[in-house]
């Protein structure tokens, strides 16, 4: 059963009860204890700047880039995909849904799909050449790498020659799937090995657990 619900104590602040946690576990690859451990992580992230139980973009940015300010195209895309409701904040449920895709045992199809949506900047259903160029320029700036425009064009040409199987100048879902299956390393960042033993990474959940073994 459910003894005094830790999650209900700051009632409206977070407001997840046992049933919610069980539902989140049922909807994901995480068991209830793992959902609770992820809740510890979520709490840490969601109070790093604004203590309101929601992850704001600045908080995600602080965690990933170690700075809350500045522009990062990729961070923006990740945030947008996590923010299912598109209301500018990541709720715990959304956090679980997204991390579920990064689980080592999540279906590869889900990872392929998520990566496609990430790179389809304008959400047209295609990864277009212009988007790829924009992303390449962004990563070069981020990593303070300097490449001539000529070389950038060459890299993109080569990538499209490989990825754009039907030769229509843009990468559709089918092209993308075949491409990443040929280059599985491109999905490496779509898997977080930590998620396999998240309860070890966040053992403090044990003190807060609502669920007895």
């Amino acid at each position: 059963g459910c003894f005094e619900c830790y999650y209900n104590r700051p009632k409206k602040k977070f407001g997840y009860d046992c049933a919610d946690l069980a539902r989140l576990a049922a909807e994901s690859r995480f068991n209830v204890n793992e959902v609770e451990a992820l809740y510890e992580l979520f709490k840490k992230l969601s109070c790093s700047i604004i203590d309101d139980g929601l992850i704001h973009k600045e908080e995600l940015q602080l965690a990933l880039l170690q700075t809350p300010s500045g522009e990062n195209l990729f961070l923006d895309r990740v945030f947008d995909l996590f923010d299912e409701k598109q209301n500018g904040v990541i709720e715990f449920e959304e956090f679980i849904h997204a991390l579920n895709i990064f689980h080592p045992y999540a279906p590869i199809e889900d990872k392929i799909d998520f990566a496609f949506r990430l790179y389809d900047l304008r959400q047209t259903g295609f990864i277009e050449r212009e988007e790829v160029k924009q992303m390449v320029i962004a990563i070069l700036i981020e990593s303070e790498m300097r490449l001539s425009d000529e070389l950038v064009e060459e890299i993109i040409d080569k990538t499209f020659a490989d990825a754009d199987a039907d030769g229509d100048g843009k990468i559709d879902k089918k092209d993308w799937k075949e491409f990443v299956i040929r280059h599985p390393s491109l999905l490496k960042n779509m898997t977080l090995p930590y998620l396999k033993d998240i309860t070890t990474a966040f053992p403090s959940f044990v003190f807060n657990t609502q669920v007895e073994d």
Binding site: L45, L73, F74, L75, K158, N189, L192
Partner: peptide, 25 residues
């Protein structure tokens, strides 16, 4: 001349895409 990298290989190096950093202390 070295073969240029795949564009997506470059892109996937972004810190913004590496969620493993969420678990860093």
């Amino acid at each position: 001349q070295p073969t240029p990298m795949n564009a997506f290989e470059l892109i996937s190096m972004s810190k913004g895409l590496n969620l493993g950093n969420l678990f860093d202390e």
